[in-house]
């Protein structure tokens, strides 16, 4: 690709007033909006806007497995397909799925599986399709969060929702929810996800360099952020029904 403007990173990730480049404090999340039931053809679906990230997720299943040889006789299988649109990033992405997309698909799948009762659906598959149409850092976390909503919207029995968020280190400081620039120019990124039926982490990756005490602090920051996002998820899931109740019973 030859582009006329280069994707350059700023030298400093904090402004003079101590705030982050997008005006956030260290512990602030970007604005998040979620909605369920956005793709009528799907068994369940959801959409999330998280900062500039815009992501759709849809769920089909349980349904018979194609190709058939992937079916397991003792339990259902969960298959996650995370994809990015060509125009979702600064340099147009090649249309075919790359290694990164496959890896993230697997990570999200592993992260969601603990909340499902796959043993109840032998021989079938649940397929979760995730399409990132606009990307700005933290798409794996936003995708995990929206995929959990789509599963719940499909009426798939779940032990709980799953919520995901990253914390990281920029210019030597720990911050919550890295934006695209912060992710690329920062020093460390720690995506996490929580399954709420046991309050345990089901996603944890780390790239960068931090001390052990910084890890401890990061995990506490993550927990705090995850709780906030979980509330938004619950609200998105219920709002659809509550709005109808209010409108109808008025």
């Amino acid at each position: 690709m030859t582009l006329l403007i280069q994707d350059e990173y700023p030298k400093k990730l904090f402004r003079e007033d101590g705030k982050r480049l997008d005006g956030r404090e260290k512990l602030d999340l970007r604005p998040i909006k979620m909605e369920v039931d956005v793709i009528k053809n799907a068994d369940g679906s959801a959409y999330i806007e998280w900062g500039n990230n815009k992501i759709f997720a849809s769920v089909y299943g349980p349904r018979e497995v194609h190709p058939h040889h992937l079916a397991k006789p003792d339990k259902g299988i969960l298959r996650v397909f995370y994809r990015m649109a060509t125009f979702s990033v600064f340099d147009r992405k090649r249309p075919a799925p790359g290694r990164r997309e496959k890896e993230i698909s697997m990570i999200i799948s592993d992260c969601l599986e603990p909340v499902l009762f796959l043993e109840l659906y032998p021989g079938t598959s649940f397929e979760v399709f995730i399409e990132v149409v606009d990307a700005d850092g933290g798409t794996r976390c936003a995708s995990t969060t929206v995929a959990a909503l789509a599963l719940a919207d499909a009426g798939v029995p779940m032990r709980s929702l799953v919520t995901s968020c990253a914390v990281g280190k920029i210019d030597g400081e720990l911050v919550t929810d890295l934006s695209g620039i912060e992710d690329k120019a920062g020093e460390a990124d720690l995506p996490t996800a929580m399954t709420w039926f046991n309050d345990e982490l089901s996603l944890l990756q780390f790239d960068g360099q931090i001390t052990q005490s910084e890890l401890e602090e990061s995990l506490e920051m993550a927990q705090d952020a995850l709780e906030q996002i979980y509330e938004m998820q619950l609200d998105a899931l219920k709002r659809k029904y509550i709005n109808i109740q209010e409108e109808a019973e008025d």
Partner: peptide
């Protein structure tokens, strides 16, 4: 609507919906 794209459109025709960048 797509910040990363030079131009974009979210279009629906009845239930058909296409995102274009």
């Amino acid at each position: 609507i797509i910040t990363a794209a030079e131009g974009s459109c979210d279009i629906s025709l009845g239930g058909t919906r296409i995102m274009i960048g």
